[in-house]
Amino acid sequence: MTDLLLELARIAPESPLAAIAAKRGDVFELTQKTHDAALRPLQPGGLSHGLRAALACRIAALNGDAPFLGHFRGLLDEAKASEDERKIAELSWTGGDDRSRALIRHTDLVASEPKKASGADIRLLCEAGIAEADIVRLSELIAFVSYQIRVVAGLRLLKGAL
């Protein structure tokens, strides 16, 4: 099994931790399926694959996770992301128009300090013209990537302890 999470945690296929993870094989398999549903869905709605990869790059950077950042940069290439989308991948960029500014602001807020989010933040997205279905797609993307990064952070620590 070549699993993205085990690869990013640098866990060798024959190692003791790989054997322990294999007992939770269903979790790793469903995590990969959710990764594909959040990053490269069949029905992307108003959030293109390139935009999703770019926002995921920001989340990886906010979490200080270089291997994940490399992975999501790879997805930017795979999606043939536009120049505007590539700018969004950089934390220093705060957006070129109302829509990208709102998407970036919300991604950074919910990835790094979800406790500070409130109904006012959802209203800001609506005011920037983002459809309700896209607000949910964006939220799942931010939330899922935050989960995935924490699973790998935990695996790295566990690897060091075995």
């Binding site: 979800p114 939220s139 931010i142 939330a143 989960y147």
Partner: peptide, 14 residues
């Protein structure tokens, strides 16, 4: 714990 990093980011923001 990681799963609730996900769930919280939906439930608390939406």
């Amino acid at each position: 714990a990681a799963l609730f990093g996900w769930a919280n980011r939906l439930m608390h923001t939406l």
